[in-house]
Amino acid sequence: MIDLHGFGGLLAEGTWMTIRVTLIAAAAGVSLGIGVALMKLSASRLLRFLGEVYTTGLRGVPVLLVILLFYFGAIAAVNSVARTLGYTEFIDVSAFAAGCIALSLAFGAYAAEVFRGAFQAVPKGQIEAARAIGLSRLKTFVKITLPQVWRLALPGLGNIFLVIMKETALISVVGLDELMRKTQFAVDYTKKPFTFYLVAAFIYLGLTIVAMGVTALLESRANRGFAIDRRQA
């Protein structure tokens, strides 16, 4: 057994923080992705342009840089905006908030592309049919489009989830106490970099396996109807 020199608890705390940040970024990123995908598919040229700027910008810049920018820059920006709105109390953007925002934005940019593809893959005929039998636009979207988009987007979203989970390690650079930084504390204290980074690597690997399992489960659920169809055919 590997000797963790009493740092096991600290690593567990870090792992929990990593999981929290990943889940927040995923939840925010999925909503953001749907929104931006709709912008990119809208008739408005301005919305399409804004959507394009967002996805190109965030997909073209390293996440490390985005995190650093948010950590250093967002506070000043947020507070100056708040002050012009007449809000005088100080608003803090912690390493946690900066990391969550940066990763949510990155998740959103990748997810937008996945959702755009998925929206386009829903047959137009179905939407026309739904409208023809008198479903409202909103109902058509919620009842016909979204469930299918979810099914089509799931594999892509699963991949993004795995990428973002690993990128949470970068928030350690601005001092968030997630798994990577807790590992560094252990390395500083014990001078055993190989041991602890390897342990951390296997924790990430474990998280990856769990995430892959959950994705597979969600996919098989979303594909229920399709699996039966194929068997009957």
Binding site: I24, A27, E89, F90, D92, S94, A97, C100, I101
Partner: peptide
């Protein structure tokens, strides 16, 4: 739960600083 966490995070991000 993750929505709860999200809500808490946003609340924390927005309100934590008030001196």
């Amino acid at each position: 739960n993750s929505f709860k966490i999200l809500a808490v995070a946003i609340a924390a991000a927005l309100a934590a600083g008030s001196a």
